[in-house]
């Protein structure tokens, strides 16, 4: 594996559309559930162990070579609300464009042809990781990190939080993010024998509900 390729894929500046999404934090800020660094940390920790674990499992399975179309169905099954399915596919399309330009691969081309409206983003991310020669655990790590890095950056913009405090928060969560990634990669390794049900399916009903509400706002800074 190439550590530099993983850094490139996981970099918030990787041009795959993520900057316009808050990972649910804009809605949480509106509900005053996130209002300072401590509440942001709680939000990020919750998201890491729910959405983060689930997306990390999908990314790891894709990186391990599982059938992406079956994984895409598994991702739909793990994403109950239409708003978040739409976001996952939109981000998947955008990730696909960036990944094909960055890590050209026949597998990416095939998935782009088979899912022209976009596959779920973590699956594209997993195949991109594979194309970059990364391991399933690397892919899981990128997904888990993104599950907290996205909301933390968005909260800094929304609440004018101290970016240094937010960065420290991400460092505090890094051991947990690594553990989530290891867990997800372990589940992905069991898919061969146990089928797709081996993949995590943790969800956060409140994030689902507020995402659906947020999608109907007429005035907002972030797309989700």
């Amino acid at each position: 594996m190439s550590p530099a390729a993983l850094l490139l894929l996981a970099d918030g500046r990787f041009p795959a559309g993520g900057h316009a999404h808050s990972g649910g934090v804009e809605a949480a800020v509106a509900h005053k559930a996130v209002h300072d660094i401590n509440s942001l940390e709680a939000f990020c920790r919750g998201r890491l162990h729910t959405t983060g674990l689930t997306t990390a499992g999908l990314a790891a399975a894709a990186a391990a070579g599982c059938d992406p179309l079956m994984l895409d169905d598994a991702a739909d099954a793990r994403t109950p609300v239409p708003a978040l399915r739409a976001v996952a596919r939109k981000l998947g399309r955008q990730m696909m464009r960036a990944a094909r330009a960055t890590f050209p691969s026949a597998e990416l081309d095939r998935l782009a042809a088979e899912r022209p409206r976009g596959a779920h983003q973590p699956i594209v991310q997993g195949i991109a990781a594979r194309a970059a020669g990364l391991t399933p655990e690397d892919a899981a790590c990128a997904a888990a990190y993104e599950a907290v890095g996205g909301p933390a950056t968005a909260a800094v913009r929304l609440l004018s939080l101290d970016p240094l405090a937010a960065s420290w928060l991400l460092a505090r969560l890094s051991t947990e993010a690594d553990a989530v990634a290891a867990n997800a990669a372990g589940a992905a390794a069991r898919v061969k024998t146990e089928g797709l049900d081996a993949l995590p399916s943790a969800s956060s009903p409140l994030l689902d509900i507020t995402a659906e509400q947020h999608a109907a706002w007429t005035v907002r800074l972030f797309a989700s």
Binding site: A16, G17, G18, H19, A20, R93, Q94, R97, A223
Partner: peptide, 8 residues
């Protein structure tokens, strides 16, 4: 820097 949404 990240033109993906506009390109779409």
């Amino acid at each position: 820097d990240d033109i993906s949404a506009n390109l779409e």
